[in-house]
Design a protein around this nucleic acid. Structure first.
Lengths: 233, 233
DNA sequence: CCTGTCCTTCGCTCCACGGCGAAGCGCCGA
DNA sequence: TCGGCGCTTCGCCGTGGAGCGAAGGACAGG
């Protein structure tokens, strides 16, 4: 592991409410501009700019200039996993008394580029239970039945294989069980969004960093996921 | 997930080199006194006391007074997992140029109460590869073959079952793959230490927070683990 | 070319945090 | 009972970080 000084330096990047709000918003997987992130964090443009510079220098986010707009994304899925882990620990040590986003949030949400929440966890359990994925040294592989079933659903397995990790676990702290990350997790999420089985929800309050992660399971999605994976909505 | 303010408050606890050093030392699984942690962190007793109070109030450590000594441990394995995750991310975004602890550290180490490093990762791969554990909704269960084999090794499966999680993954960032946590992970580590297949290494430099986690694989341990699990040392 | 927008930089103010020395409390062995 | 140890509390000092207003650079549409 790394030295305590380096460890603390990474933690410092997370140890500010404004930066935490921006990173949480970026867990939606979207690319957001500096102004959007300033609003999410409730601070002015100069402060947001300074924070974003530190996050970029620290390697947690990547910046994509596009004209006069500067779009920001999380730098990697490791950053997303770490945010999820720290968020989960925060819930463990200082539980949120009133779940501020209703049960809907727990039902389906995005964890950077893959499904999380009850749906994400149920998806994982269904894939293993049906024998569509099997354990391998560092994660999961798709079985023959799994490849057939997933392809039939419309999941792009070729694209999934281009990821550094085909399929691996990501601890979902809202459910305290694992959901599926990696290329397969990303392609399943993309497939669900593409086919409108899941839709993003327009943020009710633009400044709410969590709202951007929320997903709505459509009736069509409930039916199709129920058929293919035995997931009850 | 939790609010950004709560999230940042947890991160603040990690965002100081002295606190990070103490938490890293506690990843060894040992109970350490305030004086020992002050030395590990390189600060005086008053500063150490203040830091420990904050960590305890924040729910990351638990304090066990014993006479005039006050022993401290990590509060849970969730805290350990989170430290491992953040440490791993730190390595990802700001790699340690020179691995300060030699390859020995990577070979075998403790992650709070279970095995990590190459040995821990190899153990996980072997258990799944031999079919001694199989995936379940939230982690792993022992198969019949697994129960027989593990019991033959001397692993206390009854004790393993008392844990909140029988067996689950913990991401090992030094190897970038999962090792085994939960009750089974703990009991396997305990068995290896009890039978002197692995031994703790006296800290060369008392102030080194990582040294306490290091384990040495004994010749007997290499032989036994090789036989039972096909792990090459 | 000009105006407006997005975003960054500069300079300033205010506040919080980390460390230590001194003092004090509780425990413990002689 | 007393002296020493482990640890905490108090008070102080120094440093660093967060925010904003003003100004300025780069981009883009008319």
């Amino acid at each position: 592991m790394t030295s305590p000084a380096a460890f603390a330096a990474t933690a410092v990047l997370l140890a500010d409410p404004a930066r935490a709000a921006m990173l949480t918003a970026l867990l939606s997987g979207e690319a957001l501009t500096a102004s959007e992130l300033a609003r999410v964090a409730g601070i002015g443009a100069p402060a947001a700019s300074a924070h974003l510079a530190r996050l970029a220098e620290g390697g947690l986010i990547a910046v994509h200039p596009q004209g006069r707009h500067r779009y920001h994304r999380l730098a990697s899925e490791e950053v997303a996993a770490m945010l999820e882990t720290l968020g989960g620990l925060t819930e463990a040590v200082a539980p949120t008394r009133r779940w501020p986003h209703g049960e809907a949030f727990r039902t389906a949400q995005l964890c950077y580029d893959h499904l999380a929440g009850r749906l994400g966890v149920a998806l994982h359990a269904s894939l293993t239970g049906q024998g569509w994925i099997a354990p391998t040294g560092g994660g999961w592989v798709a079985t023959e039945a799994g490849e057939a079933g997933l392809a039939a659903m419309g999941v792009d397995l070729e694209a999934a294989r281009t990821a550094r990790r085909f399929a691996c676990d990501c601890m979902d702290w809202s459910e305290r069980r694992a959901h599926l990350a990696g290329g397969l997790g990303r392609e399943i999420a993309a497939c669900c969004l593409r086919r409108h089985w899941l839709t993003r929800i327009p943020a009710e309050r633009e400044g709410d960093p969590l709202a951007r992660r929320r997903l709505c399971l459509t009736p069509e999605g409930a039916r199709r996921l129920g058929e293919a994976l035995g997931i009850a909505a």
